[in-house]
Amino acid sequence: MLLPRWAATLTLECLMRTCLPVFTLALVAAALMALSGCDGTPVETSAAAARAPTPAAKEFSGPVDVGGGRKIYLHCKGNGSPTVILESGFHDSSDTWNVTDTRPPVPNSPAVFPGVAMFTRVCEYDRPGTIRYTEPPTLTARSTPVTGARSLTGMVSDLNKVLTAAKVPGPYLLVGHSFGGMVTRLYAQSHPKQTAGLVFVDAFGTNMKPFFGKDWTAYLELLNHPGTAFDAKRGFETIDVDGAIEAVTGAQPMPDVPVAVLSKAKPFAVPPRTPKSLLTSLERAWPKVQQALVDLGPQTPHFLATGSDHYVQIHDPDLTISAIRLVVGRVRSGS
């Protein structure tokens, strides 16, 4: 379980009692309604469509009916193509894209979601069972709860359902933080014609397991049950991580689209109860994980977020926005 850099010395239980401003409650595994196209226009998938401007679109925020008696919260803003989709990490609601914790010379605003909305359409959403950065923190009530460990294919299906039901125009530039990178990666492999590009923000990878050896099971337990007040709550997000890795490695290859990778430079912040061996394995694995993401495509820029821990989008929002803008430019140029 990973925390922002300046919460590292506090217990998760203390954070849940709001000892710090709520946006420091970051629960990610190392470890989106505004309806562009709400007029019913079919989703465009060609390269030409990716370069073409989209009609002016209103901001939208609210639940989207995805069928089966379920609704998923979606929030979209801005105008332009490709539409950027922001995918949060393990246990995190979409709130992580709307808060900042910066130090000079990094500017304190804007956060990633409003920043990206300045130059293209951007959407974020709440996966069920994720944590809102509210006062006090709570599990999201904006998306219909689900129970049991989630499969990565099910999470990708949810993403596809909410984008389809809301008629969000593609193709999409998918931005995934931490385990959210696994969601965006499998989406790209499953829906290549709807994928315009990818940005991995200190993302989880498929080559993690060998670095942990016999401690892998303990690591997975820590990811799913990090020691928060929500661990035992019905509907709290848990994921079949082994199944997720198998789903990505067994899927068709990544589409030939622009990719960028952002990686942390500071150590992971973890709960005090984390065994030292797990943290050592995690830190040893992470550079290899990031390099494997860079190797997914040719001429992939790799940005090192010097001074940032795992929450690059919170500590370095300007760098994150710049990386997204770079890939948007490559998509629009057709490169």
Rank of each mutant, 00 (worst) to 15 (best):
G40S: 08
G40T: 09
G40E: 06
T41A: 15
T41R: 14
T41E: 07
T41S: 14
T41Y: 00
T41M: 01
P42H: 07
P42C: 08
P42T: 12
V43T: 13
E44G: 15
E44Y: 10
E44T: 15
E44W: 04
E44I: 08
E44P: 09
T45C: 08
T45D: 14
T45S: 11
S46E: 06
A47H: 09
A47N: 08
A48R: 11
A50T: 07
A50W: 02
A50F: 02
R51C: 06
R51A: 15
R51Q: 15
A52E: 13
A52Y: 07
A52R: 10
A52V: 00
A52L: 10
A52I: 01
A52S: 05
P53R: 13
P53K: 10
P53Q: 09
T54D: 11
T54G: 15
P55C: 06
A56V: 11
A57R: 07
K58C: 14
K58P: 14
K58M: 12
K58Q: 12
E59D: 14
E59R: 15
F60K: 08
F60R: 12
S61F: 14
G62M: 06
G62Q: 06
V64P: 02
D65C: 09
D65A: 14
D65V: 04
D65T: 05
V66P: 09
V66Y: 03
V66T: 04
G67D: 07
G67P: 01
G67L: 09
G67N: 01
G68R: 06
G68L: 08
G68D: 09
G68P: 07
G68T: 02
G69V: 01
G69P: 03
R70S: 12
K71D: 07
I72T: 09
I72P: 04
I72D: 09
L74T: 08
L74A: 15
L74Y: 07
L74Q: 11
L74H: 05
L74I: 09
C76M: 15
K77A: 12
G78F: 01
N79L: 00
G80C: 02
G80K: 00
S81Y: 00
S81I: 03
P82R: 07
P82H: 12
P82W: 07
T83A: 08
V84F: 03
I85A: 00
I85D: 04
L86V: 00
L86T: 04
E87C: 00
E87Q: 12
E87N: 00
E87H: 00
E87V: 11
S88F: 03
S88R: 01
G89H: 03
F90L: 15
F90M: 08
D92G: 02
D92C: 15
S93T: 10
S93Q: 04
S93V: 05
S93D: 05
S94W: 00
S94M: 10
D95C: 06
D95F: 03
T96P: 06
T96A: 10
T96N: 14
W97R: 07
W97T: 05
W97F: 09
W97D: 02
N98L: 11
N98C: 12
N98H: 03
N98K: 12
V99P: 01
V99S: 00
V99K: 09
V99A: 05
V99W: 02
T100H: 04
T100Q: 00
T100P: 12
D101H: 08
D101C: 02
